[in-house]
Each structure stands twice: as C-alpha cells, then as structure tokens.
Write a protein that binds this DNA or RNA. Structure first.
Length: 834
RNA sequence: GCCGGAGUGGCGAAAUGGCAGACGCAGCGGACUCAAAAUCCGCCGGUGGCAACACCGUGAGGGUUCGAAUCCCUCUUCCGGCACCA
C-alpha cells in the first residue's frame, strides 16, 4: 500500500470493504476452534442426520480430488445443520494397508512412523478447507483401540461359523507378496493395488462366509437409494443364476454332477466337459487317454489366467477326451466326457453337460472336435434346425423338439414344468448358483490387524480369548515382504502359550485384509472411546444407519459389499437393528489431472490445495470445485475458472460490507420492493432445491446471478429499505454452507451475533417467490416470431388472445389459414398456419 | 460380446418435450489510470445483411410431434462395469 493511499480517507474506506481471504480465513478458523461450534452432542433432541464421507488413506498430502470428495458433502452437511438437524459428519483415517507399508519400505522408515507423521499434515489441510469436522471423534484404524474390535468381530464370526480356514486355489500377487480376495483382482488377473499380474496358488487361508448372505445382499439392494449403476454392479458381482443340478452316471460307477440354467436342453447334451482341475478327472481317465490328459492338465496349469480366459474368437477351444463315458439320465444315451479349460472349476460344479445346439461355446467345441449336435429348441417360424448344417447355437425362445416327453413345451414359459419333470425323474433338482465367492481375508503382510488365533501343539487351532485382546501388532518386526507373513520371523510374537491347555502354541502370523477395517468404521464414530464392544449399541442406534454416504465409484463393489455384509452380521450378533448401513449413496466423479489422467503423487500429476488456498482462499477453491460441473461427473482439473469465483465472493462481500449494520428504514416504490423480495425468495428456493439435488454448479450460478442483481440495485432506493437487509442477510445465509469463512465475516459485518453457522436456513415464501409477469415466446409454425409479456397465471385463452394481438404476429398470420393453435400457460403460444 | 453412462460455443457447462448456450472462464471493444493491476460497462455459436431480420446449428442418419439437445429406431465415437459364469 502506498503512503499516498493511506493518507486518502476515500481509498481507506474502500479498503475496508475489500475482500481479503488471508485475514478472514485464519481468524474464523481459530474462532470456530475455540468455541468448538462443530462439537457433536449425542444428547441433542434435534432430529439426527448422519452424513458420512469415505475416509482417506493417510498417504501424506491431500490433493484437490480429496477436497472435491469432502468439501461438497460438507456443503450438504452444513445445509442439514442449518435446517435444524443434529448432524454427525465425522472423519478418520484408513491407516492400515499396503500403500502405507510400501511407502514405508521405499523410504526405509517404519509404516507406523510414516502413517502417524502423515496424519497431522492431512488434518491441517482438512481444517484449512473449513470442513465441519469434530476431530474428537476421529478414528484411526491402525490404533490398537480400533483394531482390537476387528479381532473381536472376527472371533464372533468364528463362533458363528462365518469365519473359517480352508485350502484351495487362491489369487497370489507376486509383487505385493500376498494373497488377494476375488474382488481385488481386476480384468481376470490384475492386482487391484499394484497392477501386477496375479496367479493362482494352492494355499490354506482364512475366509468370511459372505455367500451365506448372498440372497439378502441381492434382495436388499431394492431397499436403498443408491445410484442405479452401483446396484447393477453389485447385482452382477453377486451373480444369481437359477437352474438345476443334474446327476450323470459314469461307466466307472462315479456320479458327475453338473449345474445348468437350461435343463430343458438336456436331450441335446451330446458330451460332457470337466474343468482340468476337477477332482474326478484322475479317477475316470482311461489308460489309453492318460498321457494326453496329463499333458493337457499340465499345459492348462502353466498358462496364465489371461491366456486361459481369452475369449478371442480366433483362438479355437482346446480340450481332450478322457476316454470315459457318461449316461444321459434323461434319455440313457452314452456320451463322451472331455476336459477343457473353458470350463471353470470355480463356478457351478466344475463340470457341464454340453449342449452344442444351444450354447455357443459348446457349439464351437463340438464343431472343432466333430462331436454331434442335436437341436432341441425350434425357433418359431423358421425352417427346422439341423445339427449338420447349423452355423451357430440357438439359445432364444421356441418349442422343445427331439426331447421325448418334453416335446411341444414352450420355452422359456414352461421352464417350471421342465424343472418339475426333471425332479420327478429323481436325477436332478432345482438349484440357484451364485457367482459370489467367500471373502478371503488373510494377508501375508505386516501392516494390518493380527488374526487372533493360536495353533497349539496339542489342542490345534484355538481362538484368543476376548479378555486377551488386542493381539498387538509388534512394532519391532522385520516387515519387508518375502512371500511369508513377516510376523513369522518375530519369535516374541510367534511363540505363545495355549489359552486352553497352557502348552506351547504359535500365533497365526497372517494379518487381516484392510477392507475389514472399513467394513464397520462408521459405527465407531458414534462412540469412538467405547471400550466394552466395537461401539456402544445405544449410541449407534441413535445415529445409524448413515443417512447420506459419499465416496468414489471405485468402491462400488469391494468396500460397499463388505460393509453391507458386516452390517448384516452385526445385526445377527445383536449389536444393531438394521441390515443396510447406508440409506442414500452418492458418488462423486474423479478429478483427473489437467492431462486427463489419474492424480498420482509418483507421476507428479497431483495438484495440492495449499498454493491455491494461499492465492485464492479456501472459499474460492470450494466454490470452484462445486462450479466445475456436475459433482457426480468429475473431470480433468483446471484452475482457469477460479478467478471468477473470487470475483463473485468479492462482489458479494462488498455489497454486504457496505450495508453493514446501518439502519434501513427508507422508502422505495412498492413494485421495486416487491421485485427485490421476489428475487430473494426465488433464490432461496432455487439454492435449497439445487443442494438437495446435488446440483452444486447450478446452485452457485443462482447465487452469482442474485449477487449481480443486487450489485445493480445497491445504489437505488430499495437499497435503503428493510427488503434490502433481508436480501443481504439472505445472501449471507445462502453462502454459509458453500463459503463458510467469508459468510461468517459477512454475518459479523452485518452486526449479527456469532455464528452464521448456528443460524437457521432461510425459508422462502411461496407467494413472494412467484413472479407477477412472465415473458413467453410466440411461435408461428414452431419458429419464434415474437415475445409477449403476460400476467403470471394467465389462462390458455387470454394468453392466445394476447399473442394474436401482437403486431408482428397478426401481420404474419394475416391472410393465412390457422390450422392449429397451441397455448401452454406460462410456456408458449404456437400458431400453425397454412 | 453383454450391461450401463455420455457426445451441446474457443473452454467448464445450462436447459430432460416448449425461447439452445443460463452462470463462469478465455477473448474483443470501451470507461477509470501517467501506466499497469483491480474494478465497472458493452459484445461474444455459424453464415448472409448497413440494419430490421433471415437461414443454419446440440456426434451421423432416419422417425414420432404443432414443437426434439431431450422420446423412438439405426449407426458412430468415448468412458465405466462384467465377461468361456454353463
């Protein structure tokens, strides 16, 4: 500031109304802190609102994507609070897991050090945002006070048979040196965490029996207000198929079971195919075929999953004949049994009846190996199908043929009759099969919750008693990944005594999948210091289920499915009374780098909030993120528009600050007063509706328009009336959720009591929000030819008469025949002429 | 391959059967200033026209309708999910 301007009173006064975020933001942040205005009170008698946003990994620093994910739900939570709800809007850190561990290995420090050093920095950045967080409820999942309850829940699940240990083929990530859950494998064989190609290994692992809840997990999707695409993804993942299980006798005397969704085509089953890993393969293979079968199995095992699962048309189906034959139980036909890798051991029974006429894969296989094809479904109105000449399988509707007693039935309508018939034959029964697998929860990594069981030399596997929890993760372990659980080399941890017999025992050295941590964390926020159970059931009952959950679409399956499963388990344990954790879900889009790629620290594509806040202020950055576009859409980052948001704040601030606490009792023409009040109330309506609809960009547009109007009016007589005070106070209140800092300062300058964030949301008066006159277009043959101003609520007829009275219209329709007249009240008039 | 979502100015976008481009950015012109920044005012899809105005225009083509960015059909491009699931 120059010496000269300081000496000029006029400039000095103008400066007093100049917006300066560097002065405003720290001041009010401190004030809110000192007065603890965001402290949540469990005993409030207001109605509750639980707004939850997915907690972050403590990865170091926030980027603008984190702000996008959090600042916008903060706006919604603030609206709910001003509406009179007792709002819980908590925050914590998903602190266990591979990112922490890998970063720690890279930087050669301990994961705990890395994690707990990062948290304060991130909290500072959330506070800078002006978020309404009550940090007294913070949850950090790597705290023993938290993961103790992971162990407790695990033991409850073990008691109920929902946790079990089992061997079998599991996904192994050679980079992360650990097993993965099915849900953590992308595109058939890519590690969800690190992108490495994973493969199957036979290992004994811990599972949660999520499949017990498959039916309910599917059905309850109908009860929640979630984006349809998320529900669809979950339905696909759960993958319910209705059909029948059929038994085929083999000549060896064994029974080969298959699952089929099309039991109606059983007469067309001309061969059978088993997965190469099927346990019966060794037993039934004949001596002549053995060498060939062994070679095929060996080859299948060596192939990568990508190669095996390739659906490339140009790659012919492979397989070999086992030498064995089965008897088709419905028509006693003797059919050959093959093995082929297109049949998966992990689905159904690992074996199929092959119906080449009805299934494209079976068709290709049959053609390739010259196996017979018998059509059993005849499509309507076509030449009878012939197995010799068919060029592709037919799986559509039609009439059953070549099927003895089933002939003449209509598919798919008569499917129930077919199932009934199959069951009557005693060789099969109706069955529902699921794509969902049990959740593999053990990991051969360090930075996670130890699984609370021991293996006693005499008693076998023994759960750690509840009163010995938590089984603490030792901080002095060698945690570099070796493919074995790191805890295995920690003698002090490994060796213990058996809780049952007191003899020597070894601890389980695997840790839990970190998705376990996030499967119940929102309950912990309701009573973060409770020490008798994972959470206080009474307090949880007060707050949960979560009313609004916000987070990224990337969790559509993994986290959200597990969280739903846990809620149902906790209900069955008796801790909660509901089965669906999140009543309403909204997904934000992803903020990409300017180049359109994911923001990543390692690739240097991350844009942090600190510099932007220093330059433009947190309020402007919040607005900019809201104004970028629809929140559910996301998009590439750009900071071009942020200056526009700053300009808007400056104008709003100036208008309000100039008004200050001046007495306003001036006079102005009634119509001007009415026009201003109407604008004010229409703006309240628009802003309220837009926030409710998560349409934050148009909400900001409405605030800007309102401010621009006030800017024009500020030197007219209405600016001296009570309606003006209503207008500027309303502007301040409407801005409070979006721009908490400057709204607080504006409220203060208007001479009001601290805090704007403890005020009620303005209500609008419907009659004031209604406009007196509307301008509508008048069209001739669908083209706009004039615009007329008519009274709001004018009838169809009056509106039409007014349109015809227009000079432009009457001259253009003169001498023409009116074919049709359309008049939509308040919208338009269209006159069709010839 | 199947399922879902999207394609609108120079850019982010609005409008989900009724005036296409609200609002913002960038740009252009002007005011203020010694000057710059900031601020304020105006213009800002294309073509033609001095203008009034006319015509064209929402990925492409067709359809329904008095009227379509919006609904229907075909195609196309991009994004997301699932995928040899019997």
């Amino acid at each position: 500031m120059s010496v000269q301007s300081e000496a000029t009173p006029k400039t000095h006064e103008a400066d007093a109304h100049r917006y300066d975020h560097t002065a405003i933001e720290p001041k009010w942040r401190q004030e809110w802190n000192e007065k603890a205005i965001y402290r949540v009170d469990d005993s409030s008698d207001k109605p509750k609102w639980y707004s939850l946003t997915m907690y972050p990994y403590p990865s170091g620093v926030l980027h603008v994507g984190h702000w996008y994910a959090f600042a916008i739900p903060d706006v919604f939570a603030r609206l709910q609070r001003m509406r009179g709800y007792n709002v819980l809007f908590p925050m914590g850190f998903d602190a266990f897991g591979l990112p922490a561990e890998n970063a720690a290995i890279r930087n050669n420090i301990h994961p705990a050090t890395w994690t707990y050093d990062n948290i304060p920095q991130m909290k500072r950045q959330y506070d800078m945002m002006g978020a309404m967080i009550d940090w007294s409820r913070e949850v950090i999942t790597s705290d023993p006070d938290y993961y103790k309850w992971n162990q407790w829940i695990f033991l409850k699940m073990l008691e109920r048979g929902l946790a079990y240990r089992s061997g079998g083929a599991v996904w192994w990530c050679p980079n992360d040196q650990t097993v993965l859950a099915n849900e953590q494998v992308l595109d058939g064989s890519i590690c969800e965490r690190c992108g490495a190609e994973v493969y199957k290994r036979d290992l004994e692992q811990w599972y949660f029996r999520i499949t017990d809840y498959a039916e309910e997990l599917l059905a309850d999707l109908d009860k929640v207000d979630w984006p349809e695409r998320v529900k669809t993804m979950q339905r696909n993942w759960i993958g319910r198929s209705e059909g029948a299980r059929l038994q085929f006798e083999l000549e060896t005397g064994d029974t080969l079971e298959v699952f089929t969704t099309r039991p109606d085509t059983v007469f067309g089953a001309t061969f059978m195919v088993m997965a190469p890993e099927h346990p019966l393969v060794q037993k039934i293979t004949t001596d002549e075929q053995r060498a060939e079968v062994e070679a095929y199995i060996d080859k299948a095992r060596r192939e990568t999953e990508i190669e095996r699962q390739s659906t490339d048309e140009s790659r012919p189906k492979t397989g070999v004949f086992t030498g064995a034959y089965a008897i088709n139980p419905m028509n006693d036909q003797k059919i050959p049994v093959w093995i082929a890798d297109y049949v998966l051991m992990g689905y159904g029974t690992g074996a199929i009846m092959a119906v080449p006429s009805g299934d494209e894969r079976d068709f290709q296989f049959a053609r390739h190996f010259g196996l017979p094809i018998i059509p059993t479904i005849q499509p309507d109105g076509q030449e009878p199908l012939d197995g010799e000449t068919m060029t592709e399988a037919y799986s559509g509707p039609g009439t059953i043929v070549n099927s003895g007693p089933l002939n003449g039935l209509r598919m798919p309508e008569d499917q129930p009759k077919v199932i009934e018939w199959v069951e009557k034959q005693g060789r099969g029964k109706a069955e529902v099969t699921w794509r969902l697998r049990d959740w593999l929860i053990s990991r051969q990594r360090y930075w996670g919750t130890p699984i609370p069981v021991v293996y006693c030399d005499d008693c076998g596997m023994v759960p750690v008693p509840e009163d010995q929890l938590p089984v603490e993760l030792p901080l002095d372990a060698e945690f570099k990944p070796t493919g074995q659980s790191p805890l295995m080399t920690h003698e002090g941890f490994l060796n213990t005594t058996c809780p049952t017999c007191g003899g020597h025992a070894r601890r389980e050295t695997d840790t839990m999948d970190t998705f376990m941590d996030s499967s119940w964390y929102w309950f912990r926020y309701t009573s973060p210091n409770y020490d008798k159970a994972p959470f206080d059931p009474a307090t949880a009952a007060q707050w949960t289920p979560v009313d609004l959950y916000c987070g990224g679409i990337e969790h559509a399956i993994l986290h959200l499915l597990y969280a739903r499963f846990f809620t149902k388990v906790l209900r069955d344990i008796g801790l909660v009374d509901h089965g669906e954790p999140f009543t309403r879900l909204r997904n934000q889009g992803m903020i990409l780098s300017a180049e359109g790629v994911k923001m990543s620290k390692s690739r240097g594509t991350q844009v942090g909030p600190d510099e932007l806040v220093a330059e433009h202020g947190a309020d402007a950055l919040r607005l900019h993120l809201m104004f970028l576009g629809p929140w559910e859409q996301g998009g590439p980052w750009n900071d071009r528009g942020i200056t526009g948001m700053e300009r808007f704040i400056r104008r709003a601030f100036q208008i309000v600050s100039e008004t200050g606490d001046k007495q306003l009792d001036g006079e102005a023409p009634e119509s001007d007063v009415r026009a201003l009040r109407s604008l004010t109330h229409r703006t309240i309506r628009k802003v309220t509706e837009d926030i409710d609809d998560f349409s934050f960009n148009t909400m900001i547009a409405a605030l800007i328009e309102y401010t621009n109007e006030l800017m024009k009016l500020r030197e007219t007589p209405v600016a001296k009336t009570a309606a003006w005070r209503e207008a500027v106070e309303t502007l301040t209140l409407l801005m409070a959720p979006s721009t908490p800092y400057v709204a607080e300062e504006m409220w203060h300058r208007l001479g009001n009591e601290f805090s704007v964030h403890q005020q009620s949301w303005p209500a609008y008066d419907e009659s004031l929000a209604t406009v007196d006159t509307v301008e509508i277009p008048v069209q001739i043959n669908g083209k706009v030819r004039d615009k007329i101003v008519i009274a709001n609520g004018a009838s169809k007829e009056d509106q039409l008469a007014a349109a015809k009275a227009s000079e432009k219209i009457s001259s253009q329709i003169a001498g023409k025949t009116i074919v049709k007249e359309i008049s939509v009240p308040g919208r338009l008039v269209n006159i069709v002429v010839k």
